[in-house]
Structure formats: structure tokens, C-alpha cells
Design a protein around this nucleic acid. Structure first.
Lengths: 133, 133
DNA sequence: TGCAATTTACGACAAGCGTCATAAAATCAA
DNA sequence: TTGATTTTATGACGCTTGTCGTAAATTGCA
């Protein structure tokens, strides 16, 4: 069994995982190419090896080895969000959504999608209430 | 001028800042009391001293000294959120909001508030479109 | 076959963070 | 005034993370 995923990932870890999520299984060279900045070959190697040790990334046996993310993008984002809610906004969700919606100039399509999410959540809340004995 | 705020704060730093945001200016002892777990007196001291050195916290000159957060809670949460959007969800905001709204069982009041936020954002988007020359 | 290129193994250093200790100084209270 | 308590100054250790190096092994190619 893979080691327990840490409560949070470091910036460098996220940086590499983002490449794996975007490109799928990659070799070390391909991972190095996937960064938006110049990082040493052996830096990438060390980072990937450490993530393999942690069970966050898997490594194939062929040569050159291929590295794959062993954690889902949305699990990672959920975990980090939960940490933000608990640690920074004292359990409150609204300030975070406010920032995402207001300050980041979200698209009309995304806004429409969010409306649907909220409508569904409201309906769910009504069902829960009605379900009470 | 205070030193530049770091792109992100460590879990321990967030833990202490949360206490400062919640309780306002506190002494070292009061800060130690504000944690929801047992942390050594000199651990709290070292952490606060490092944050003062970074310009993230200010320290009064009286005795015992009082420590105050020099960064706003919502600035910190905004910065961390932006990092999440960029590093984890590839620029996409919807998955984050989806997690906050759906998986965290948000209250009816909060949902109503979010509806208003989205309506305002939609209106803003329409104004921007109409404002185009 | 032999050399170049690439990959792998292994290592090391510095900085940051989390942890707490000890000793001196200041304050408090009897 | 004196001892107790609290605060401050200073330090140190271990772990994690970010960085890259060197040497050996493997693959590629002429």
C-alpha cells in the first residue's frame, strides 16, 4: 500500500505533480522539459525519487523509467482547500469563493456552471431538511 | 518598509497567524494559550520572532511584548488560493468552488450569499461587455 | 566496435522550519 | 529586600526541501 498522502505538498512537489497531471507518464527528461523554468536534470531526478519514496508518484521498471502521479489532482486540491478553510478563514467558505468569483475575473461559462452547483447544493439541503424525522 | 510577504506561509506560520487574527495583539503566553494543542513556550517564541524578522508580524516595545499580524487574513487566503488555482487546477476555478460548495456541506445562509456574489459577478461581466468600445 | 549521449545511482550542501533548552533580565509579590 | 515567576535573548538539533554534482551503467549511432 502506498504511503499515506501527506496533509500538504510543498511548492516543489506541486510543481512536479502539475507536470505529471498535464502530460501523463513522463520520463525524467520529459518532466524537465515540462517545467516553465530551467531546473537541473538531477534536481528533477531527486525530486521525483523522493516522491516515489513517499508513494505520491510511481515509477515504471523500463528504461528510461516513466513517472506517474499516484494522487489525483482533485484530491490534492481538496486537501489544500480544506487546510485553507480551517487554518486561514476559520471554517468560513464564503471569503474563499468570493475571491475566486470576484477578484479573479471568472468567465461567463464558469459563472453559469457555478450557478448550477449552488442550485444543486440548495436542493440537496432541502432534501436533507425534509428527510429529517 | 516591511519585508515582502512570502508567496506562501508554512503550516506553523499559518497556525500562529490564525491565533493573532482571532485574538488580536497577544503576548507570548496568550499566543501559547491560543493554540488548540500543547506547544512549548520557546517554540512559540522562536516562531513569533521569525515572523517578526520577516515583517509578517509586528512586536510592541512594552513588556511583555504584544504581537500583531502585519498581514491581512484575506490577503493570505487570496494568495494561497491563487497558488492553488495556478499550481493544482491549471487555472481552473470551478473545481475549487465545487469542492467548497458540494463536499463541505455549506449552510443555507452561505449558499444565499454565494448566489448574490455570482449574480454580482454576472452583472459586472455584462457591464464590461457593454462598456467595450 | 567505440564513442557520444542519456539515464541511473548515490551523494552532499544550504536554507527553512519545527522543536525545545538554558541563562540572564525584568517583573511581581510577600 | 528577596525569592518566585515571567519574559527575553540566544542557541542548537533534526528533518524536510531545493539545489546540483560526479561516476557508473546503459543506450544510441556512426
Amino acid at each position: 500500500m502506498a504511503k499515506r498522502n501527506p496533509p500538504r505538498l510543498s511548492p516543489g512537489e506541486l510543481e512536479i505533480l502539475e507536470v505529471l497531471w498535464r502530460r501523463g507518464p513522463v520520463t525524467l527528461s520529459e518532466a524537465q522539459d515540462g517545467f516553465d523554468r530551467e531546473i537541473g536534470y538531477t534536481t528533477v531526478q531527486t525530486r521525483l525519487n523522493r516522491l516515489v519514496e513517499k508513494g505520491i508518484v510511481t515509477r515504471s521498471d523500463d528504461r528510461p523509467a516513466r513517472y506517474t502521479a499516484a494522487v489525483a489532482q482533485q484530491d490534492v486540491s481538496a486537501r489544500h482547500l480544506d487546510l485553507l478553510v480551517e487554518r486561514v478563514t476559520g471554517g468560513s467558505v464564503v471569503p474563499l469563493v468570493a475571491h475566486l468569483v470576484r477578484d479573479r475575473r471568472i468567465s461567463a461559462d464558469d459563472l453559469a456552471e457555478l450557478k448550477q452547483l449552488i442550485a444543486a447544493a440548495e436542493q440537496q439541503a432541502r432534501k436533507s431538511k425534509n428527510g429529517k424525522s
